[in-house]
Design a protein around this nucleic acid. Structure first.
Lengths: 249, 249
DNA sequence: ACCTGAACACCGTTCAAGT
DNA sequence: ACCTGAACACCGTTCAAGT
């Protein structure tokens, strides 16, 4: 005997939601739905209210503020990546490439949120991603110090590059095409006298959004990690003072 | 005989600006001043008006809209990088590292703007940065196709990583410290049974904002570029169809 | 406990009006 | 040509009130 008028007339989303049916999961789904249509800027409390069939400020009962909602959306990206990731194999390099490729794919699929993902989510699924990358680094044969450093660098490069590609993908079509075309046309029209190197290789320039750019970056990182795992550490590199024992974590 | 009341009382920024003294240069300086104090969100037309001693909408005479202003700010970052960059030497690898390091330094110095720099500025100073990076790639001995691809990847990694670090730096102090501390504390408190690899190398984890992270990323890229320049191209890699001649750009 | 209504102090952008 | 004033359709967040 709810005041629910489902099935009758009314605009697309104005169905009234029964009391108590609002929760973080439902709100997150609504936030992604809105962001997919109009970008992250479209994720306003008013839009969420309309999408959910609730009052705009009802969301405040479930997320302290907008930042809290954003961090939950970022963690959802990590969750989606993990869900699609195949089990680790015996090949650390292949596993590392798979992690990066899947993360990139998920980010580009949800560009509006991904463009904001320089924030540390500090949530469960982010921890699990970290765990898997460090696992690869240790299996590569790196010592703790290199494993820790290169985990961080590999993750940051993958994240930063994915965010970059997502940022491009999340632009409104008009702006994005202007950015993309500037590489197809504008750069090839630059005066060769002033820009001789651009002119010389303009014929080979990959598109700004060529997905091979990212995979090449990942390949380069793995090649370099392989080299470092094989080579002995540079004796000139700064070292932790041996008089200070390692902390007992 | 201007209606200028300089020197008398009045609030910090309310000096009235003489007609005709507004231009893109002056507005850009004001925009950076505002963004340095309160982040990019603080760069509103009202704030610009107050900073300039002019009506908020006066800016519209000089920039079509806010996007146009933002792109000009990004190009200003490239200009600042170029201004601080030493002349190229005979060592392409050192030159490449210098370009990346200077760009990163400028980005972290202007974090609010840099966090938005996934946009292609399509302006003079961006062109000059591109020219210099491609120059290094060609001096490394790469053929046109590799020079073009690796220019793009190296630039994107440098840009993406710099934007990531800038994003972290541009957070308000409270939020930033929460993100930073999560690596100092939260990650070391994770259950070792569930996260064995994190636990194993937690003692060696670099800080989220450790500048060596970025330089390590640059070093890895250069090591891999050096490897590719030395090695003959992989014959199994996909190749352009030799029946299709190169476009005559 | 969960949600709504109304209010507050903001935004970017447009457009007619002033000088 | 350059700048101002007023208006429009929005924002996130707070808080008292309803159920």
């Amino acid at each position: 005997m709810l005041t629910d008028d489902a099935g009758s007339a009314g605009s697309t989303r104005s169905r009234r939601r029964p009391r108590g049916s609002l929760n973080q999961r439902v709100i997150l789904d609504a936030a992604f739905a809105v962001s997919e249509r109009g970008g992250l800027d479209a994720v306003t409390f008013q839009a969420l209210g309309a999408e959910l069939g609730a009052h705009p400020t009802a969301v405040y009962r479930h997320f302290r503020d907008k930042d809290e909602l954003l961090l939950a959306m970022i963690d959802a990206l990590h969750a989606e990546t993990l869900a699609e990731l195949p089990e680790p194999t015996s090949d650390w390099a292949a596993d590392l490439a798979a992690i990066a490729r899947h993360m990139h794919a998920v980010f580009v699929r949800h560009p509006a949120v991904a463009a904001y993902s320089y924030r540390t989510a500090r949530r469960e699924h982010e921890y699990q991603m970290v765990e898997r990358v460090i696992d690869c680094m240790r299996r590569a044969g790196l010592d703790d110090r290199d494993a820790a450093r290169l985990y961080r660098v590999f993750s940051d490069v993958s994240l930063g590059y994915s965010a970059l590609d997502a940022g491009l993908a999340s632009l409104d079509p008009v702006t994005r095409n202007a950015d993309l075309l500037s590489w197809e046309i504008q750069y090839r029209a630059l005066p060769p006298g002033q820009y001789p190197n651009i002119a010389a290789i303009a014929h080979a320039l990959p598109a700004l959004d060529d997905p091979d750019n990212f995979t090449t970056a990942v390949d380069l990182m793995i090649e370099a990690i392989r080299g470092r795992a094989a080579a002995p550490r540079d004796p000139n590199a700064p070292r932790a003072d041996p008089a200070q024992p390692q902390a007992p974590w």
